[in-house]
Design a protein around this nucleic acid. Structure first.
Lengths: 350, 350
DNA sequence: AACGCTTTAGTTAGCGCTATCATTTATTGC
DNA sequence: GCAATAAATGATAGCGCTAACTAAAGCGTT
């Protein structure tokens, strides 16, 4: 008795509306929806036509129930990513949409152990098929194992390779920091200081390592370094120390744009002009860089594309398809007004 | 034949596992899950105990299929919200989690007609139960009607009341801008200029109106105004004109923090010190405000709480519960280093 | 033309819930 | 004490899909 399938009475079209319209069984429609090869071209065309004319879209939730999959992928991040979150989210969204998935976003308060529980609760609640983990959450020890135990496919953006994730998209902190070092040396700077990030965080360790190693390659020694915690206040505190050095550094590299903003603040307070005698470089390529005065030279990683790649990998993982190792998209050194050639001779005294 | 319900064989526990464990029918478990009153305290306790001990969580997707609801709510925004998006998202997330919903986020490229189609496609794809629309998307003419036609419950954050949404949470642009005007006048400023937002956008119109009306109330006339488009470049361009006026304004109010950053840039270039002789005020209370030099006085709206309220209203709407009119959370004028008393005038007589 | 083999299409049993109806059991009035 | 009513619980039909399993049709072979 399929008498009621004959009308599209107002409600959303279902697979049986399509089947009726195309004069086939729902099984065959299902085959078309799932790209099964066992359908004749003729039938397929008729079904596709019916789908279009009814503007039918398979219900994700019915499909989810039947397959045991949700067609949902999650993003976990933490508060500090606010500035790149939007970019990442959109990148994930692009690829997810392309492949028929939806995206759910979750922000966790990063308290090491607490965060693991929090993420697990999120995955259970939302029943996502796969998870994209952004740093610094991705660096939490034990998280990939916990996710594995819960059968959640996970792909991470991370500064360094980590065991346990299905795939890692490297954020190339070290390379990007190295590019900054090369750039500063090319400008003739020899007295270079750095405000590092918190050395408990992998990203910060890598930025420092990449910067110092590149300086080494250029046979330049790091004049001085002070550890910050990525906050504005710590940037200010570090700059106060660095700008009390004598002679002054000619360039300061801050491990993120926010701390660099702090450096600019102190420089301004002490009437040390930027970019000369003091060049300042930030890190992240965030929106704030161009808003500062002077606009901050910084280095941007292609987070949008990285997110797309991560999503691609994740869905491949979920669907059991091969994981091609894509070439990483290029870094971009965004040169602005906060850097210039090293002043000839020594810095003036103040 | 329920022989297989007796073991919890590895897989996620289902409602029948719970029913078996508690020695009742699944119907009764379902009642407990849905807070139906028609269950004895004794049975309820036994079922709740079984739920806990199995750490059972009802499958959203099965529930979705059975009820025709998805327990998903969406957020639509556009690129320009990046700075507050995170706050809003977290606010929505808090309330949504509390009430058993998940959140899906969608960013649309705001092209008036295009955006409507884009949002509709999003709602159809994700089958959300309700939608939270952020400005400026919420101001798109015809969108609430289009959503109504698709049966999507929608609540908007908006600068002004709009017909068609289930509920509106006012962003109080005018009030906040008025607070800035009051503050500047209290500081003794009489020559006040404004960089407005694009007068095609409601938020910008309201900010301008609120500012001017408050000045009027204080018997101060707006010295000059220039329309920007919320971008850095437009802020710079506007400042170049305003800072060529003679005599100079003693205070400039920019309709968002980004344009205010532009004003600071030009002031710095022309060696006009901020906050004296020139005070600068931004709008939004965004992260960038404190990063600028000098830190920008700005006004923050409680978007996190507004988002929570909006979500509360939305879920009430979806579930057919009453919509209480909550008192709006307070605005916060964030006074920083970019403002000080007017260098010339003393305070007005009243 | 009868046979097997491949290709295409249909039948149908769930997926884990909700909610309509029916049924059983406790409570109350007179 | 017994019908009448209320309260608590159970049996079960879907929700819109997927995916075994089954059936029919096309097509060379000998």
């Amino acid at each position: 008795m399929d008498s009621d399938a004959s009308f599209n009475n107002g409600h959303e079209p279902t697979i049986s509306d399509v089947a009726y319209r195309a004069g086939v069984s729902i099984r065959t429609v299902s085959r078309v929806l799932n790209n099964s090869p066992r359908v004749s071209d003729d039938t397929r065309a008729r079904i596709e036509q019916a789908i279009t004319s009814l503007s039918f879209r398979p219900s994700l939730r019915a499909r989810a129930l039947a397959t045991g999959r949700s067609f949902l992928i999650g993003i976990v991040h933490n508060d500090r990513n606010a500035l790149v979150l939007d970019t990442v989210q959109r990148g994930v969204g692009r690829e997810a949409t392309r492949r028929g998935y939806e995206v759910i976003c979750h922000s966790t308060p990063l308290e090491e152990e607490g965060a693991i529980e929090d993420v697990l609760a999120f995955t259970r609640r939302s029943r996502i098929d796969g998870l994209i983990v952004l740093p610094p959450v991705s660096g939490i020890i034990g998280l990939p194992q916990a996710l594995q135990a819960e059968q959640v496919a996970a792909v991470a953006l991370s500064a360094v390779p980590i065991n346990g994730y299905g795939s890692i998209i490297l954020s190339r902190e070290a390379d990007a920091a190295g590019a900054v070092a090369d750039y500063l040396v090319a400008l003739g700077h020899q007295r270079i200081a750095m405000v590092t990030g918190p050395q408990s965080m992998i990203s910060a360790i890598e930025r420092r390592r990449g910067f110092i190693e590149a300086l080494d390659r250029n046979r330049v020694a790091l004049l001085h370094e002070i550890e910050g915690d990525y906050s504005l206040a710590s940037g200010v505190a570090a700059a106060e120390k660095l700008l009390s050095l004598s002679p002054l550094p000619t360039a300061i590299f801050a491990a993120n744009d926010i701390m660099a903003a702090g450096v600019l603040k102190v420089a301004s307070e002490r009437r040390i002009a930027v970019p000369s005698p003091l060049s300042v470089v930030g890190f992240d390529g965030s929106l704030v860089a161009e808003l500062l005065t002077p606009a901050l030279t910084t280095v941007a990683r292609p987070f949008g594309e990285m997110a797309e790649i991560a999503t691609h990998q994740l869905i491949n993982l979920v669907e059991g398809q091969p994981l091609p190792q894509a070439a990483p998209p290029p870094l971009r050194l965004l040169i602005a007004q906060s850097t210039t050639a090293s002043p000839i001779g020594d810095c003036p005294e103040f």
